[in-house]
Computed example of a mutant assay.
Amino acid sequence: MSESNIFTIYGTDPFLIELKRDEVFSELKKNNFFIREIFFNNDKTFKFESLYQENEASLFSEKKILDLRIYSPITKENTEQFIDFCLKLDQENSLVLSIYNIDRLTTKKWFKEISKISKVQEVKKVYPNQFRNWVIEQYKKNSLDINEENINLLIEKTQGNLLAAMQEIKFLKLLNASTNFLMEDSSDFEIFNLSDSIFSSDLENSLKILQNLKNKKTPEPIIIWFLYRELERLILIKEDKNTFFPGPKSYQSNLKKKSDSLKLDFIVELKMELAKLDRDFKLGRSDFWKTSEQVLIKLCNPQFFSKTPA
């Protein structure tokens, strides 16, 4: 075990924790960590045996990220086992701990112990009077040079919602936005009509909209961005039922219903399919629109692709 391969992220805002976690993942990928296993510690019944199994050295020496998300305190009974696991972490693995809104966290014995052997990052809440500076910081991180008019429009449009703001920024980056690009130009894409169809499990209409987008020669990266965004939202709703997204009440309601109807593993598999589609498309090795149709079919009718989707 070495300090460099254990990362501890903690805070009160699930989205900001996810954002910081993604930054850690991006850095690890630069060091050839491409395999990730996700574990959830939601209650006292969590067993560390599965972590020990994943930590066992691979015959092929594959570098692996163990992504442990902690929603409830490690019990006194499990503290010793937890620290032992961290100390015995294989050099070919990295452990990323995400700790969500646990009261008096810094006073916990297990947290004090893990702080001694990991890189600890506290993710602080972004208050309304800090929102503008946070948005500007994200522009810089994403190498976007956008004028004051665009910044003001984004702030007005997202109303302090960090997730919505970040998704707009990703969208602008995807479009290679410049100082001459106005965000209102991005709001009229028919692609956003897909959300209601997908979350209402209306396959026929979803495929019709996708065909219209194809006929209009909508850039393929926009389709990938949209589908990936919706999958991310499904996961975030699973992690926190109170997560809010801008839009009509029907959108929020249908989003929650769809999230409840799908297993987390099923959503993660779809994200992996999208990542493969993105990679293959860039290399000219896939029928982009046909594969996108297959993803839509799975989202609308998961019961045909998973024995227990719910």
Rank of each mutant, 00 (worst) to 15 (best):
G160V: 12
S118H: 09
V135N: 05
F111V: 09
D145E: 02
P128D: 08
K109P: 06
N133A: 15
K119V: 04
K112N: 14
I146N: 07
K109N: 03
G160I: 15
Q130D: 14
Y127R: 01
L144A: 08
D145N: 10
K124G: 02
G160K: 07
K124Q: 14
N147P: 05
Y127A: 04
E149M: 10
V126F: 11
E122G: 12
Y127D: 13
Q121T: 14
K109I: 15
E113P: 02
F111W: 01
T107Y: 03
T106Q: 14
Q121W: 04
I155D: 04
K124F: 11
Y127C: 05
P128W: 08
N147M: 04
V123I: 15
K119R: 03
K124R: 14
I114R: 07
E149G: 00
W110C: 08
W134E: 05
L154H: 06
I146L: 15
Y139H: 05
P128Y: 14
S143C: 12
Y139N: 09
L153V: 15
K119H: 11
E148K: 09
N147T: 08
Q130I: 07
K141E: 09
N147F: 06
N161T: 04
Q138W: 07
N129C: 02
P128C: 13
T107L: 13
N129P: 00
V126C: 12
N161R: 01
V135K: 10
K140D: 00
K116E: 11
L154M: 12
D145M: 05
S115L: 06
K112T: 09
K157A: 07
V135A: 09
Y139T: 10
F111I: 08
K109W: 10
T106R: 11
E148S: 09
P128F: 06
N150R: 02
G160W: 05
I117M: 10
K119D: 10
E156D: 15
K157E: 11
Q121Y: 09
L154I: 13
Y139P: 01
I151E: 12
I155R: 00
S118N: 11
I146Q: 02
V135M: 14
Y139D: 06
N152G: 03
Q138L: 13
K141A: 00
I114F: 09
G160A: 04
Q138Y: 08
P128L: 12
K141G: 00
Y127I: 02
Y139F: 10
L153Q: 14
N142W: 13
E149W: 04
E137Y: 04
K125Y: 15
N161H: 00
E122P: 10
W110Y: 14
E113A: 11
D145Q: 12
E137F: 00
I155Y: 06
K125G: 02
I151H: 04
K119W: 00
N147D: 09
N133F: 02
N150A: 06
K157Q: 08
V123S: 02
E156R: 10
N142H: 08
D145K: 13
I151V: 15
I155K: 01
Q121C: 06
S118L: 03
L153Y: 05
Y139E: 10
K108H: 12
T107F: 11
K124E: 10
N129Q: 08
